[in-house]
Amino acid sequence: MELPLTVEIILKAVVVLAAFLTLPLAIGQTEHKVMAHMQGRLGPMEAGPHGIAQLVADGIKFVQKEDVTPAAADRWVFRLAPAVALIPYLIALAAIPWSAAWVAADVPASLLFVLAVTSVGIFGTLMAGWGSGNKYSLVGGMRAGAQLVSYELPMVLAAASVAMAAGTLSLTGIAQAWSWWWLVWQLPGALVFLIAAVAELQRVPFDAPVADAEVVFGPYTEYSGLGFAFFLLAEYAGIVVMSLLFTVLFLGGWSGPWSDTLGPVWTLLKATMVAILILWLRIAWPRVREDQLQRLAWVVLVPVALVQLALTGVGVVVWG
């Protein structure tokens, strides 16, 4: 059945928005529970059976809280920052395919599109760091800026390797070109991409910009109520986007048994695994120091990504 174009666009937008609002909550709930059990606790248990509605309750709480803008804040910059942090991930989510047919916005160079759009999200952090008029926020914002610029390069290089191997910039095309031995062939690139993605998300072990013990949550110190909730949502939406992107690039997306019908399920399953891995790192590992963080990016990740690029080039020429 062919739908009129406008209806189709509106329908897709609604679906993407729904996914954008529910998937981060699911990740957040998973983090609550996985972290609790990994620490010998139970986690939230009261809101709904096994605390299933905990984040909904949190959301209601955030809405009720007073939205404070500090006197020293750069008013508009401070106010706009949460939206700037959140919206890029919403746009990126629309371009990531769940299966060959399940993609909201199938742009030709979707890989570049997703990377470019997510790189805009950093301005939310920078604006929050600057606009709060707070020295801890400023330090956190600077750490975030330095970290994101450093890790952008290995991330793009690792993604470029896959694009080269598939011979296309389209995420759908990359996932279709994928076959199981890429798991070995693209392994260094995959590791680099995963590490860089965790760093881009400012998650442990790369959470120096928001380190609570050092800069009291850095750029987000002054936020309360909905602004803070938006930043939290952006963090978890970031995990969703990065997990899906990693799945499509390095794990073959929807490929698996009966992928014609079960494609999106495979994507969801693989992305959930990646997301849980990202959560797991936060629970198991300590924070990396700022200089170690820069060193890792430039001394380890960039060279490894370049080697992977060369390896891919050789592979494409020899077998392609």
């Binding site: 609790a36 990994m38 010998g40 606790r41 797991w280 198991a284 590992w285």
Partner: peptide, 21 residues
């Protein structure tokens, strides 16, 4: 060390929690 961190947390995950409700 990193592997040990992952292993320890995974082992704790497999065991029942100590929490009393």
């Amino acid at each position: 060390g990193l592997g040990k961190g992952l292993a320890t947390t995974a082992r704790t995950l497999a065991r029942p929690a100590h929490t009393r409700q």
